[in-house]
Nucleic acid binder design. Sequence first.
DNA 1: CCCTGATTCGC
DNA 2: GCGAATCAGG
Length: 224
Amino acid sequence: MSWTDERIATLKKMWEGGSTASQIAEELGGVSRNAVIGKAHRLGLKSRPSPVKANEKKKAAPKAKAPPKPAPKAAPKPPAPKAAAPAKPAAAPTPAPSAAVPSQPLPDKRPDLPKIVSVGPGGFLRQGPGDQQPPIPPAPPRRLVPAKPDPSIADKTSLLDLSDKVCRWPMGHPGEPDFHFCGEAVNPGFPYCVEHCGRAYQAQLPRGARRPPPPLPFGGPRVR
DNA sequence: CCCTGATTCGC
DNA sequence: GCGAATCAGG
């Protein structure tokens, strides 16, 4: 198995979402727990729950060990100086536990995308430059809502349900009980549905208000 | 022992 | 760059 962008994205999501390396490895398939950890480090994301501090309270992870590894290791292993792990508390996206009554499940979407300026090549709506305040690169979405325990995940699109035919736009935070993906039919040729393409690919309209051939950002998304 | 992530190091 | 082997704490 190779580390495709998709798999890396999944790794990042789950890692940042609090999933353990074992779970991520199981999810990705074809890779070991160590592979996940190693890749995570190479990607720059590391630390978080320290090696041996907070222990998870779950026993639902039976480990499938297929390859018995005989390790005739005679190589002397120098006592690792144990490069001091930076005890930096990784910025956990933990939503503040709102002490408020949980009767309010979903504070509705935030007001977005009021104006439509033109239509992109894929058919999605393109926004004008004035419609966005901060830069929003292609994989941002983090709703600022606490969490909604109420809606049991019914037909939500889970990580396992992702395919090249459904919108991969994440809904909610990874790790939250109801984290899922949009799941709508994709805008053909894009990893997102039409609506989320409009959010993922925000074309930069020239100030002079012209330039017929609007280049797709990033040279266009990949499709697999 | 089980789990966890961290690190090393041969490939 | 990859990941098995290994280390180390809970």
